[in-house]
Every structure is written in C-alpha cells, then in structure tokens.
Design a protein around this nucleic acid. Structure first.
Lengths: 216, 216
DNA sequence: GGGGTTAACATTGTCGACAATCTACCTTTC
DNA sequence: GAAAGGTAGATTGTCGACAATGTTAACCCC
C-alpha cells in the first residue's frame, strides 16, 4: 500500500515531447532515415521550436536521432550491424535485470507476472501485432521489476529500437507459437530461480531475434 | 593506416556543451545537488540560453541532471542506493563488452593494451589521483575496444558517475596496490581468453568498488 | 509567537525574429 | 555538352525579450 502523499513530479515540456517522439518513432510514424523538420513538427505539437529542439536533443543523446549540423535531425536507420549492437546492449541489460531479480528479488512473483503475459500471448494467437506488443511488454516488465532506474532508462531506448525493427518487418515477423514457448520457458526459469538456465535462455532468445531480423 | 579523407562530422553546439558539462560534473566543478543556473553558465560559456538548455537536456536524459519544473536543473546526488545501481549498470555493460571481445575480438591484443595501463598504474604508485584516472582509463579502453556504439554511449554516463564518486572521496580512495593487482588479473584473464574467470573477476571488482564507496 | 497574506525578486519557460548555412536549380562560359 | 559559378528557397542555429512560476522576506492579524 503506497501513500497518496508523494512528491508530485510534473514533467517538463521537453520530456513530454521526447516521450511523444519516442512513441512516434517506435510506431513507424517517422520512418527510419526521415528528417524531422522542426517548424512542421512544432506546429503539429502546438509548441514553439525551442522546447521541441530540447526534446529532440534527448533522443539524439539516446541515439534514436542523428544530428547533421546545419542540416537537421534524422531518424536512425537500423542497419544489420545496428540490430546486432542493439541486441548486445539489450541482452546486457536484461541479463543484469534478471540476475538482480534472482539474487535479491521475489523471483517467484516475477516469474508468475511474466507467465501472465505469456498467457495473453497464447490467447492472442495469430495476431502478429498483438503478439509483438506482448513480447515487448514481457521484456519491459522484466526490467521494470528489477527496480533499477539506470537499467530501465537504458532499456527504454533499446525497446524503441526493437519496436522500429518489428514495425519495419510487419507481416514477416510471425512464428508466434515459437515465441510464446520461448517466453514461457524464460518465465519459468525465473520463477524457479534457475540462474544458469535464465542466462542461457535469455542469450538464446536474443540470438533468435537477431537471426529473425537480419536474415531477411 | 587510415585515410585523411573522411566525412567531417562537425559536432553540434549542444553536443559540445554537453561534453563540457559532463567533464565539469565528473571533476567536481559542479557539486552534487548544486543547481545549474542557466544565465550564469550561458555567460561563462559564451552562448545564449537556448543551446545551453539543449545541451543540458542531454545530461538530463542521461540522468546526470534532474529537472524540477520551474525550479531548474540540479546535479544528481549519488546516494548509496545510486552507487549500487550505477555499478549494476556498469557491470552489465562491461561484462557484455568483455564477452564480445572474448567471443569475436582479438582478446590477446586487448589484454596487452589493458596491461599497459596496469603498468602505468604501478608506476604512478602512491598518487591517488593518477591511479584513479588510470582506473577509469582501463575500463574506458575495455569498452571502447569492444567496438559497440551503444555500450560505449551507456558506459560514458556510468564513468561520469564513477568520477563523481571518486572525486567525492578524494583522499580516502586509496589501496592503490590492491587495485593495480585486481586490474592486472582482469587484463590477464582477458588476454588468455578465459571467459569464466573474466566474469568472476569483473563481478568481484565491482563489488569491491561498491564496498569501498558505500561503507564510509 | 504562530499563521497567513502580500509584494518584490530571481529564475525558468516560451516565443518570435533574424542570421548562417545548405541544397537545388539555373545561368554562364569554354 | 560539361563544369564552374551564381542565385533563390528552405531549414537550421542563435539570440534577446517577455511571460509564468516559485521563493523569500516583510508585514499584519489573531
């Protein structure tokens, strides 16, 4: 039971803008490689260019946008090399998160929470978009439950990049059955507190994803 | 031998400002918890508040600054909890970097390069500031040689936070002999391609650091 | 004296305007 | 016809000014 009285943290405008941009990029509203034209976007968001630029700097820092001086900011284009690098980072983060949960968290509860998502995944059978969202939800939950601000922050960026990849593939990204099973195994490994198996499955899971994404 | 002809990437002003701020924070020029007053700093840097604010947003994204709406930006204050979390993230990154080097890099060359820093560490014996810098150089080199843009970007933030911790301690942070030996063992594990031992030493190294920093 | 109100100050948040730069197209010249 | 040069348009980079907000201290009332 958390208290109702807590410091109220009003988000700054740049931070809100950054969130909107992340969502837009993750959902393919801005295509990879596309230029973000400040004046247009500022008008659409109903703010001036100042706060918008500040928000965009955040995404630049995250590596979701790349800056070319006097030319503008562009959405990154995920090369196969980028995909590999992103999964390297993602695996590092998620392994650390899983490890922390197994070491000093309630891994049984976490495992059950993850299995709930797996159930939904099985229920959403056939719908690639829904399964994709649940896939992301699974990994987001895993890291969130590790209760690490830094891992969460880094992971958020990786998940946007993952979304970009999934979105770029659309239909091609299927094999929903196999994915549900992979996630179920992983959730169970965590639920039972099996460190070695969690490591192994997580690693294999990432390798599979890379394989699916780059060999196309 | 690299070519002299390569695309010239001019850094954007916010990016330069962000770099300067990171250095300033890492070297204790801005104390933890201190407010960054925009007008003052803009005057000192010789730019207007616009670009400065954009640069500061980058550090906010990195978690080095925290924003309180209508109040301003403040340098983070590293609580013991923060130190633990930072080392969790750092360990995740460095393990991934080491693992990548051992898997598909020239680990022997990397190990030797790291040993060169260890030698300097032994030579700088007694000078805590010098040893501290070499400690950081060691870990920066490790991650840089993994050749991963994402791990490098994430690691940079962690290293600023590490610097903050070291700087906050100043004199207390000694035991230079022990540190040189720890690093030497680690470098040798990498040089010989020993995955398990690298993992183990890296993990122990981080735990030691946490111990030194929080138990004060 | 404690609590509440008000006013002055400092700082941040936002905006519009201007300068600098790049791109693309057109013109000129050989 | 191809290359060099010039020009117009569009976009980003930067700045100064104003509005909004929060803080502090003085003052008043009970």
């Amino acid at each position: 039971m958390t208290s109702y009285i807590e410091p109220l943290a009003q988000e700054s405008t740049p931070s809100i803008i950054a969130d909107k941009l992340r969502k837009a990029i993750g959902h393919g509203e801005f295509k990879p490689g596309a230029q973000i034209v400040e004046a247009d976007l500022a008008r659409k968001l109903g703010v001036s260019r100042g706060p918008l630029r500040e928000g965009m700097q955040r995404l630049t820092q995250e590596g979701l946008l790349v800056s070319i001086r006097n030319r503008g900011l562009f959405v990154i284009d995920m090369t196969p090399q980028d995909i590999r690098d992103m999964y390297l980072a993602r695996e590092a983060i998620e392994r650390a998160a899983a490890f922390k949960i197994l070491r000093d968290g309630d891994f049984e509860t976490v495992g059950l929470a993850l299995l709930a998502i797996v159930d939904q995944m099985a229920a959403a059978d056939g719908d690639p978009a829904a399964v994709g969202e649940l896939d992301i939800a699974f990994h987001e939950l895993l890291v969130r439950l590790a209760d690490s601000p830094r891992l969460s922050r880094m992971h958020r960026t990786s998940m946007i990049e993952t979304r970009m990849c999934i979105h770029a593939l659309e239909e091609t990204y299927l094999a929903t059955d196999a994915r549900a099973i992979e996630h179920e195994r992983l959730a169970n490994a965590i639920r039972t507190g099996d460190v070695a198996r969690t490591d192994e499955l997580l690693s294999a899971h990432m390798d599979d994803a890379i394989e699916r994404l780059v060999s196309r």
